[in-house]
Amino acid sequence: MDRRQAFYKLFVCIGLIYILYALITNLVVDPDSEMFLSQKAGLEHELKPRIWLTVMHIHVGAACIAMASGLINFSNLIYERHRRLHRVNGYVYVASVLMAVLTSGYMAPYATGGKINSIGFNVLNLLWLFVTATALVHILKKRILQHRRWMIRSYVFCFTNLLIHLLTYLFHRMIGFDYLTSYTLGLYGSIVLILIAPEVLFRVERQIGPPGL
């Protein structure tokens, strides 16, 4: 096993663990999101819990599908031996991203922390749509390398929620900021990391080769 195979398998493990975590947390441990809703403050719009909860579950499902389909399509084995599956699964990814963005757009006005965080989530949604659409345009024009790079940029957005909660925990529990401030820092810190991480990966690839199996 070379380094790029090991990198891809580590990548798959992290993705699968996070998908299971998201599904178990939202469907089994706290299906009504009572803990998360109890932390919401500074809202400018009246939240209707049942509608919000339904949209949130659709959002989680779409994000998990996007993450899973991305893991499949980053496999060199799938790309080389099952081109049609790669192509169809790519459209599944794009549709899942669109659904995740639309549902996030509905939830953005109810973001914890109020307007400043609503703006942050809308920025994330627009960026995710832009990079995904750019990746789609490149593959339609047969620009394989550019397509792959923009797909990596798009795929990193699947980890938005994970990054937000990790950074919020860091600022709130370890540094001692209040929860709302920590959440805002976590959101905007995640935007920065999402934009930087792919560029760091591209530099690493020059040393170990592209991730894949």
Score class of each variant (00 low, 15 high):
residue 171 F to N: 03
residue 123 V to H: 01
residue 7 F to K: 00
residue 182 S to M: 07
residue 44 E to A: 12
residue 126 L to V: 14
residue 49 P to F: 07
residue 166 L to T: 01
residue 12 V to R: 02
residue 82 H to K: 13
residue 187 L to T: 10
residue 148 R to C: 01
residue 156 V to Q: 02
residue 77 L to C: 01
residue 24 I to C: 04
residue 26 N to A: 14
residue 50 R to S: 15
residue 32 D to V: 07
residue 127 L to H: 12
residue 62 A to F: 06
residue 211 P to H: 08
residue 76 N to I: 01
residue 43 L to N: 11
residue 29 V to K: 13
residue 81 R to M: 03
residue 13 C to H: 00
residue 56 M to W: 13
residue 114 G to T: 04
residue 161 N to E: 08
residue 49 P to Q: 09
residue 63 A to G: 14
residue 19 I to D: 05
residue 151 M to T: 04
residue 30 D to E: 05
residue 32 D to A: 12
residue 191 I to S: 05
residue 70 G to K: 09
residue 81 R to K: 15
residue 44 E to T: 11
residue 56 M to C: 03
residue 4 R to V: 00
residue 46 E to K: 08
residue 166 L to K: 00
residue 21 Y to G: 02
residue 46 E to A: 07
residue 121 F to A: 09
residue 13 C to L: 15
residue 130 F to M: 14
residue 153 R to K: 08
residue 72 I to K: 00
residue 181 T to L: 13
residue 155 Y to H: 12
residue 158 C to G: 09
residue 74 F to W: 07
residue 116 I to R: 02
residue 4 R to N: 15
residue 64 C to Y: 06
residue 140 L to S: 00
residue 177 F to E: 05
residue 32 D to P: 00
residue 105 G to M: 06
residue 31 P to V: 08
residue 101 V to M: 06
residue 126 L to C: 12
residue 77 L to K: 10
residue 85 L to Q: 04
residue 76 N to H: 14
residue 199 E to S: 14
residue 206 R to N: 12
residue 9 K to H: 12
residue 1 M to L: 10
residue 200 V to T: 02
residue 83 R to V: 09
residue 126 L to A: 15
residue 24 I to M: 03
residue 203 R to F: 08
residue 1 M to S: 12
residue 159 F to D: 06
residue 11 F to N: 08
